[in-house]
């Protein structure tokens, strides 16, 4: 594999990450090649020693996940959502599928927690932002954005979700009520009522299952939005 092939593969493997961050990472490797070539090493040799681009990309993602995980532990409302032991198997599966999800590394011990070094979020601008406080201009912008755009949108979405839940529940209750009536009615009418009730209940169950997923997705997006807000206010680049 030559330099271009290596960098291309690395870039592809880094895809889910912030483009700005990807650019910085690729620059580091380009510099590595440039320095190696100066020592009259060949591109093939160098890329062989660097190792598998997919593995390198994974190591970057792992340390990002670590960093975010530590950050999340500090804000308590997310803790329950994130804790692997309180997560349902489906939820864990869902988050595991998200390439940039913060909780995909839950199996591993937070190694840096003991030395307290892992508490800072990993941003694209990394050390330049270390120690930087809250940016007031951005804070005002975020407040305005949330009050006038995000809040109405979120409230309407919650109402819609609530409406769907109520509808699904209502259909279920109607189905159950038909059962009750079917018991009183004898003969063919009772049978028809019973079957009609059955189909209503089935419909309600499907609706409720659908709603569980919809609500989960909504909460997930909301959470991402909060994280993004927080990163923005803290002056870091949103990943």
């Amino acid at each position: 594999m030559n330099k271009d092939q290596f960098l291309y593969q690395l870039q592809q493997a880094l895809r889910p990450l912030d483009p700005e961050l990807t650019k910085e990472i690729l620059a580091d490797f380009e510099e590595h090649f440039a320095n190696g070539l100066q020592q009259s090493r060949s591109e093939e040799e160098l890329s062989k020693e660097l190792g598998d681009p997919a593995q390198i990309a994974k190591e970057y993602k792992d340390s990002i996940a670590d960093g975010q995980q530590h950050q999340d532990i500090r804000s308590s409302w997310q803790e329950n959502w994130q804790r692997p032991d309180t997560m349902t198997p489906e939820a864990r599966h869902q988050t595991a599928l998200q390439p940039d999800s913060t909780s995909w590394q839950h199996g591993s011990e937070p190694d840096t927690a003991s030395d307290g070094s892992g508490t800072k979020a990993w941003t694209a601008q990394d050390h330049q932002n270390a120690g930087q406080g809250i940016n007031e201009g951005t804070l005002v912008l975020v407040i305005v954005l949330n009050l006038f755009i995000a809040l109405p949108v979120v409230l309407s979405l919650i109402s819609v979700l609530f409406g769907f839940w109520a509808a699904a529940g209502g259909i279920g209750i109607a189905g159950l009520a038909l059962f009750a009536v079917a018991i009183l009615e004898a003969g063919i009418i009772g049978l028809i009522l019973f079957l009609f009730g059955l189909s209503l209940v089935a419909l309600a169950v499907i609706g409720l299952i659908l709603m569980v997923y919809l609500t989960k997705g909504f909460v997930y997006l909301l959470r991402q939005y909060f994280i993004w807000n927080r990163n923005l206010v803290k002056g870091g680049a949103a990943i």
Partner: peptide
């Protein structure tokens, strides 16, 4: 693998 060094460096930089 030489490539493993760079994620470590970036993490150390992010940590300050």
């Amino acid at each position: 693998a030489d490539g493993s060094l760079y994620p470590i460096l970036r993490k150390l930089a992010a940590d300050g």
